Simulated scan of single mutants.
Amino acid sequence: MTARSADRTVYLRSHPVLFALLAATRRRPVLRLGRTVLVHHPEAYREILTRVPLDRTAEHTTGGTAARLTGGGLLFDQTGAEHRDSRRELAVRLGSDGVAALRPHWQQVLDRLESDLAAGPVDLVPAVRRLAGATAAALTGSTADPVALALAAERAAATTARTHLPALLPRPGAERRARRAAAQLTALLPDPRDAMLAVAAVNTTLAALPRAAAWCARAGLWEQARTDAPALAAELLRLTAASPVLPRAAAADATVLGHRLRRGDRLLLVARHAAEAHRDTPTGDPALAAQAPFGLGRHACPGAALARAQLADLLTTLAPHHPHVRHTAAHPRSALPSYRRCLLSHRPEPQ
């Protein structure tokens, strides 16, 4: 099985309805389904995120759903100067100096992972969960156990996602479970407004790092990881597109690639296709493809540099062992396409 086909099974098994919808509509640059607009084309994706006014707290958006479940007041759930100040502050915390200050928190986890891998097979998912939790705790000032914080952030994201992603059947009680999970997460944070930050830091890390490492192993890229881990990390984040869809809402009428958007339209921005993750090499703008999984312009995720640094360090840790993938299993209830188990071994499997 190729690295690409193996990674595709994560979508098929963890988010089958979403994957089927994206696959069926991929060749339509912009497609309207009632008041929902699917956006696949990279240029349309760029235009919307850089030119079209968006409502961050509208119904069915990530921010809107999270605000409804927590009573509002979350980081980035502000307007005007307050919102701009929050983004500037976080940009500093996640800039080069901020990432350098955070690195010791995850490096301890990687040191332990390397020791465990030298001794035998290891499941990468629990290690990455601890890494993500330790990073989130450092970012938010939480004194909670890193694994407990990560698990709470996972539950909050998973239950929230199920209130606004497509499903085959109704989900009775989904709203109640989402509220309970949100309350459990905020109880672990000194400032409840940091719930969105914790959710993003944990879930994107869990979706990205194990899948990228498995792709690297299956494609035999460990020598590249040894010589240029940062460049490989950036490319693997494009290929795996941890956040495949960005749910947003139009705050004003607009026209994109000849398609009319109306104020209040629900927008499903397919970051996976804007990044051309289905291609080995982007056919369009490579800079756009590399950045697309993290959004663009003023709507870009400020944690992009953090994600690239963490993955580069993970690849650097694993590369000397040239690990092989022994087993992977998709997580059927995760908010983002993720592994529930990713077993690596420093020795090849017997033939």
Rank of each mutant, 00 (worst) to 15 (best):
A292Q: 07
E43H: 11
Y45R: 09
E223I: 05
Q351M: 09
L267D: 10
F294Q: 13
P282R: 09
H83R: 15
V256K: 05
P320R: 11
E175V: 03
L90K: 13
R238T: 08
L344F: 08
R272N: 01
A198K: 02
R84W: 07
G63M: 06
A150Q: 11
R112W: 06
S334D: 08
R347F: 01
P230I: 09
T25Y: 12
A100R: 15
Q310I: 00
L315D: 15
R218T: 03
Q224H: 14
L288W: 13
V199Q: 09
G64S: 15
L165T: 13
L49A: 14
Y339R: 06
L232D: 14
A335Q: 01
A274Y: 05
L236Y: 06
A58E: 12
G120R: 09
H83L: 14
L139F: 06
V122K: 06
P42G: 11
S142Q: 04
R176L: 07
L318K: 13
S243E: 15
A252Q: 08
E47F: 07
V245I: 14
R308V: 04
G264R: 09
T240L: 05
L69V: 07
A187D: 13
A152V: 06
L197A: 12
R103K: 13
A198Y: 02
H40C: 02
S5K: 06
N203H: 01
T140V: 04
L151F: 03
R176W: 01
H60W: 13
Q184C: 03
G72H: 11
E47R: 15
A201T: 15
H278M: 07
L318V: 05
P282E: 10
P210C: 05
L31C: 13
V122P: 02
L18P: 00
L18F: 02
T328Y: 12
A161P: 00
E82D: 15
H324G: 11
A274D: 09
A290R: 15
P293N: 03
P320D: 11
R341W: 07
G141N: 11
L38D: 13
V256S: 02
A207W: 01
D116I: 00
G297P: 00
